[in-house]
Design a binder for these strands. Sequence first.
DNA 1: CCCTTTGCTTGATCCTAATCAACTTAAATT
DNA 2: AATTTAAGTTGATTAGGATCAAGCAAAGGG
Lengths: 263, 263
Amino acid sequence: MAGMKSSSLSAMHENKVISFEAIRIACRNCNLSTLCLPLGLTPEDVERLDTIVRRSRPLHRGDYLFHSGDRFRSLFVVKTGSVKTFAPSPEGGEQVLGFHLPGEIIGLDAIEHDAHSCSAKVLETTAICEVPFSRFEELSVTIPSLQHQMYRLLSKEIAQETEMLLLLGKKSAEDRLATFLLSLSHRLQKRGLSPTDFYLSMSRHEIGNYLGLAVETVSRLFTRFHEERLLVVDRKHVRLTDLDALEAMVQATPLEDCRRRLP
Amino acid sequence: MAGMKSSSLSAMHENKVISFEAIRIACRNCNLSTLCLPLGLTPEDVERLDTIVRRSRPLHRGDYLFHSGDRFRSLFVVKTGSVKTFAPSPEGGEQVLGFHLPGEIIGLDAIEHDAHSCSAKVLETTAICEVPFSRFEELSVTIPSLQHQMYRLLSKEIAQETEMLLLLGKKSAEDRLATFLLSLSHRLQKRGLSPTDFYLSMSRHEIGNYLGLAVETVSRLFTRFHEERLLVVDRKHVRLTDLDALEAMVQATPLEDCRRRLP
DNA sequence: CCCTTTGCTTGATCCTAATCAACTTAAATT
DNA sequence: AATTTAAGTTGATTAGGATCAAGCAAAGGG
């Protein structure tokens, strides 16, 4: 009822004024602009981008952004909250593909097939910016720096998945969880949040699934890390008390091939 | 010294006329155009793209396209032959990230950091098209369909790596090798080659490294697949004698979570 | 051609993390 | 508050694949 541009979707729950207003910030005022599509654009071009962005009211835990198989129409950017993407298998199982924090773009894998090959599910109350892709492409043809940024973001996604391949291909369970926690830490820090003190919006089951480990293993590792004074964990809340040790654990990848040239 | 456009690099070994001429085919005559950057472009635009493509003389086994850490200047497209990319680790080990066949683009992960995060090494005599990226970007600003195709190719790379994550995250050694062989089979078929009869340009060690398995495991699996009449293998030569059985093996992913709603 | 090197295969043993099972705690529903 | 359900932890056992060890075959080099 407030603004005249009440966006595409119907606006109920208008009693949640505070959070709803908070998410309707335009790109130009958004603190994520250094991570997101507007990076490198002139203020004028940011305005043009802004006109095609759709901002819905907040989604809640369990809501879907899209399902595997859906026609690809838009990219989705997390504004606040978090989202998991996963590949559902016919038998009801799933493979978690990623957890997405504010500023991260979801749906980049769908451009080629014009259909989503994974599903995206909201982990907590979350605000999303929707970017209709056909309109985006029209725009990026006329804004070279937007095209450049899009190439960079796509490339970044590839580089990140490569990191993940490295992790799953070679490393131990311990390394995997350490890397996961450090990844969260770094990403939260970039967003101006505490790199040592945060809540996990995903379950142990989802962490394990993501890292290719059983729930039990994840649980045991949390216990062990706790015992080793690397962190304090209580339910979903984690406090990393020895970032250096975690980093060292990951660095010290005792990769093979160190004995090949002996006798 | 036949042609007048003797390309950027010096042209020695002109006695290798046949193969050298073969690789100097322009984009418009290249049979890979349905897989590569020219897809969807007008003949006129293909010509424009062609002017920025550099075609060197053939590279040989062990040659590098680039090293990890090199400044990013160009994308590389395999024209004939094959290339492996890998992340070298300080201790001398490496993680193989991919094997690249004709029409596949290498270097997409480097756009963001403006530096290569992996190395690319030629597995057999190989012809490469080099696409200077800054010139490519200039061009793709003026050719919407080229921008579109680049988005698609980047997206495809992301989707492929996602597939790989799924493989490494959940599947057994058997599944991994079967998936690997089928992937090769499909990709060769798309290129007009036999999907059942081919040579592996990479070693067992490299296959194992890529799939997150020990060499010994790969060797044992080849033996087992042979015993099960799924393939005939002799050294580097493979003939897949039961594609359906291999497909079935991969499909029948007995993913967990089938017992959760019982007692 | 012999000799070394490199790549591959096969067998034996070990170890990490999965699986199975039981129990605890927290959250949701009544 | 009582009951149910879901999530997490801990222990015991097992299995799949890594590692260790040895031998063989092909390729390369003098």
